[in-house]
Amino acid sequence: MLRFISAAALAATLSFAPSVGSGQLIGRAANVQAAAATVPMHKAAADAFGLAHVADSGLAPGQSADDFRTWVSGSGGNRDNVVAFGNFLAAEGVGSIVPLWELTRTSSSWRECGAEPFEAPPPDKWEHIVTTLKFVRDDVVPAVGQVEAVSGYRNAKLNACSDGAPKSAHREFFALDLTPVNAAVDRDDMIRSVCAAHARDGARYDAGLGFYTGRRFHVDSSGFRKWGPNGKGATSPCVHYA
């Protein structure tokens, strides 16, 4: 069974960046990934992947916790990449904000697009989600309680098939689509609370905010902005609570 590397080992690993050739992974993410492949984990798999606390909104058919277990156990590469990603998030202090396994959900269109239901984000994009997770921790969760991630990284092919913008924040893994875990939080309360948090602190986190139908919303850290159905700020539901 795999085990997480210790904080001390991570600190030592992240402090040294060896020279690498063209095409190889570079920087802290590469070091964490390499360490994860050689250092066993001291936690049970359920804790390692955040499966000990499972929420299922029903918004991600075919992307349930059981589906993740099947996917991650089907390939050693999948398992090792997710473990390395989790170790990186832990080292950055954002490892327990959203269950790790949910961060590997791709898109609700995965089946129609012939894609995978889960995908470990590429290591060169791991740092992009850190600020987004901090905004979720510091502002979104206090506003609506714990959240479930229903979509994260989308590769270029899946993003195009899902009708994502060519420069979608999901492609670079700045973005998460979320929904409140607490079913008692209705759409109006969710919008009002998240919009207030975004207006107060969004600029500090360079946070983008958009809302879908129902209780699903988008956050990223690739530009302070908000938008509505036509992609414009003027149609954002936040304008009703300004």
Rank of each mutant, 00 (worst) to 15 (best):
residue 11 A to C: 12
residue 23 G to C: 10
residue 41 M to R: 06
residue 104 T to C: 03
residue 50 G to M: 10
residue 87 N to Q: 14
residue 74 G to I: 15
residue 242 A to M: 14
residue 127 E to M: 14
residue 20 V to P: 04
residue 216 R to W: 03
residue 24 Q to R: 14
residue 196 A to G: 05
residue 72 V to H: 01
residue 214 G to E: 06
residue 21 G to Y: 03
residue 5 I to L: 07
residue 105 R to W: 04
residue 49 F to C: 01
residue 230 N to V: 11
residue 148 E to C: 13
residue 118 F to H: 02
residue 77 G to S: 13
residue 29 A to Y: 00
residue 121 P to E: 12
residue 18 P to H: 00
residue 107 S to F: 03
residue 78 N to M: 07
residue 194 V to R: 00
residue 96 S to D: 11
residue 145 G to M: 09
residue 210 G to R: 11
residue 86 G to F: 01
residue 159 N to L: 14
residue 99 P to D: 04
residue 145 G to H: 04
residue 234 A to C: 10
residue 23 G to I: 09
residue 177 D to G: 07
residue 188 D to V: 14
residue 115 A to R: 05
residue 166 P to K: 10
residue 184 A to W: 14
residue 12 A to M: 15
residue 35 A to C: 11
residue 197 A to G: 01
residue 80 D to H: 04
residue 98 V to M: 10
residue 116 E to I: 04
residue 117 P to V: 10
residue 97 I to M: 08
residue 105 R to L: 11
residue 135 F to D: 05
residue 104 T to H: 03
residue 232 K to V: 06
residue 236 S to Y: 06
residue 158 L to P: 00
residue 155 N to G: 05
residue 175 A to E: 05
residue 5 I to M: 06
residue 176 L to T: 02
residue 97 I to C: 04
residue 113 C to I: 14
residue 135 F to V: 06
residue 68 F to S: 00
residue 48 A to P: 01
residue 220 D to R: 02
residue 55 A to C: 10
residue 189 D to K: 11
residue 78 N to G: 02
residue 214 G to N: 11
residue 50 G to C: 06
residue 190 M to E: 01
residue 56 D to N: 15
residue 158 L to D: 00
residue 128 H to Y: 04
residue 65 A to E: 11
residue 173 F to H: 05
residue 76 G to L: 11
residue 13 T to R: 11
residue 176 L to N: 02
residue 231 G to R: 13
residue 131 T to E: 12
residue 175 A to I: 08
residue 96 S to A: 08
residue 204 R to N: 12
residue 142 P to V: 13
residue 28 R to C: 03
residue 96 S to I: 03
residue 82 V to H: 00
residue 139 D to W: 00
residue 41 M to A: 13
residue 211 F to I: 02
residue 17 A to W: 06
residue 68 F to M: 06
residue 59 L to Y: 07
residue 133 L to K: 05
residue 46 A to Q: 06
residue 18 P to K: 03
residue 168 S to W: 13
